[in-house]
Amino acid sequence: MSRIKRFFRTYKPFTRAGVQEMVAYRANFICFFIGEIMSAFIMYFVWKAVFLSSGSKTFMGFTMEDMVVYLFISFLTDYLTYSDGAFAVGEEIVEGSIAMRMIRPCSFEMSFLFQEIGNRLISAAMIFAPMVVGVEIYRYAIAGVVRFHPGYFLIYIASMLIAYMISFYFNVCYGFMAFFFKNLWGTSLIKETLVSFLSGGMIPLAFLPSGLAAVLNFLPFASLRYTPIMIYMGMYSPSEIAWRMGLQVFWLVVMFALSKLIWHSAVKHLSVQGG
């Protein structure tokens, strides 16, 4: 018990720093958020035109209501599970400031993690409730009944937290890779575009050809975004939820192990010059 206590006491200052950083730059955050959410609104109008043009109430099994929930919850999930704290790993290796992190009596990636959690707490406080409430008001206005399901909502949060951890360790791995490629802008653009598509960010995986969809459903990317959204929407049966979340945990373990492996082999080759 005291070990756990000590653990949290060690990392609390990082979380506090993350919170302070986010509070200081909240205007930046809000501007960025507005810029980003516009893409969700563009998609909303595109889908409205699609449903208007098709004359049918459903598009490959999704109603307009489903589509709107999908778009905005997908956006929200992506925003909250996005992780770039470990992105700095590469930069710190280049600059040599990684040495400072290594001599501290605390774990390297945990300090990143807790700092980012502080960051996320503030951004979540600003956007999470307004977006969920907005989506539910829209649903209520369209359907005339309350569609909000507290059970699915709680499982969604649990699934999203696992998704965040997968995202975190995935990006720790990526941070090391980026260091080898040396091009941060180009490789991140490629990574983000790929992850966004493969995790169902642009099109629900159900709309893709069935063979491709089956493969993507199994890959770790679906665990990052598609699984939590589908849970929120109530698209999965209880047994399916259990199996999907099991898969999420499996990928979390894989990413965690992979990041440890890369870290240990990188430390062996690391040489920092000067100081």
Partner: peptide, 20 residues
């Protein structure tokens, strides 16, 4: 390599949009 990766990234973004 920088240039190539950046260009591939931008191209990929467009390809997925078109798939949509």
């Amino acid at each position: 390599a920088d240039f190539l990766l950046g260009a591939i990234g931008l191209l990929l973004t467009q390809v997925f949009q078109l798939a949509f």
